[in-house]
Write a protein that binds this DNA or RNA. Sequence first.
DNA 1: TCGTTCATGTAAGACGTTACATGATTGT
DNA 2: ACAATCATGTAACGTCTTACATGAACGA
Lengths: 174, 174
Amino acid sequence: MSLRFAVLGLLDDQPSSGYDLLQRFKWTLANVWPATQSQVYTELAKLAEAALITVSDEGPRGRKEYTITAAGRTELQRWLTEIEPKTLVRNEMLIRVFFLGVVSRADAEEYLARVRARTVEDRADLLQLRDNVDWNTKDDDLSTYGRIALEWGLRYNAMNQEWAEWAITQLPER
Amino acid sequence: MSLRFAVLGLLDDQPSSGYDLLQRFKWTLANVWPATQSQVYTELAKLAEAALITVSDEGPRGRKEYTITAAGRTELQRWLTEIEPKTLVRNEMLIRVFFLGVVSRADAEEYLARVRARTVEDRADLLQLRDNVDWNTKDDDLSTYGRIALEWGLRYNAMNQEWAEWAITQLPER
DNA sequence: TCGTTCATGTAAGACGTTACATGATTGT
DNA sequence: ACAATCATGTAACGTCTTACATGAACGA
């Protein structure tokens, strides 16, 4: 359901084709709500069907540019203010932690070390994103709130790194 | 796919019926990998079919107790050491942040305040979990690693709370 | 002319949610 | 007797992933 609003939100910022949206996803929402090419095109068709967006332009190679409608913007606002976000966390990294007792201590430690290494890499990616995007010249809402979301990512990674380091110290002797 | 291993991991710790597993899920994995009743029973059937678990006992009301097999334990270890966990984060709370520009400043602030309030509640739940479970008398692996995972949850909530408070200070005047 | 990028769409299958459906056993 | 708990299973539907399929336009 969130993908629907992610698409709607990006279109509210600026009319785009499916192809455009996929590029924009990469730089903005990929770390928060990944979506495949297949999904985006299917969602666009459904949104158009529901009249929350319309084809506003057609270009070469069958390109279709979509624009959000008034009904679409209303829906987007309703989603933001009235629909309580589910807090559910599905964490593939953390679920493995529960069962580290079934492997050797060495393997458990290696696992946590890899987790730590990953957070360092992810953090580097986010920092690069922060430095590559020219936030100053863009003072639109998406940039403002994108920066706030990016800060969440940086803090999340820092937290994970610290936790992984601490967790290694907590491993039982066995 | 992870649910499969969550079930396997719990059965490795101790033979259980589907009903038992659902109770145990509530106290352990619910915050990391939620599962419904429907899903658990379906997964048990599939795991038994694949001979990774077997029915080790039958009780009243059609109760079936499952036990992990040697093949099952091997699979579990393989998953832990060889399968790289996907780092993908799907975050319903954070995706909304990107689009807070489409609602009023007051609504945006209210949204972030609610996020903050939620983290406080969630943290309280985790603290209660920590205090209700008697970790000292249980020195098995699941308890050890469960404690480490719980610490992640506490840090995660603390981080979210601090971030939400900071985010409110970053809202544009408009 | 040839490789890359642009551009859209469909299909099969896995996973997850919600709802439906049923009934035995236990404790008060 | 009656409510709560124990206990299992299926079906429909929605979402997500992976793969397949196709081709136009652009730039070197």
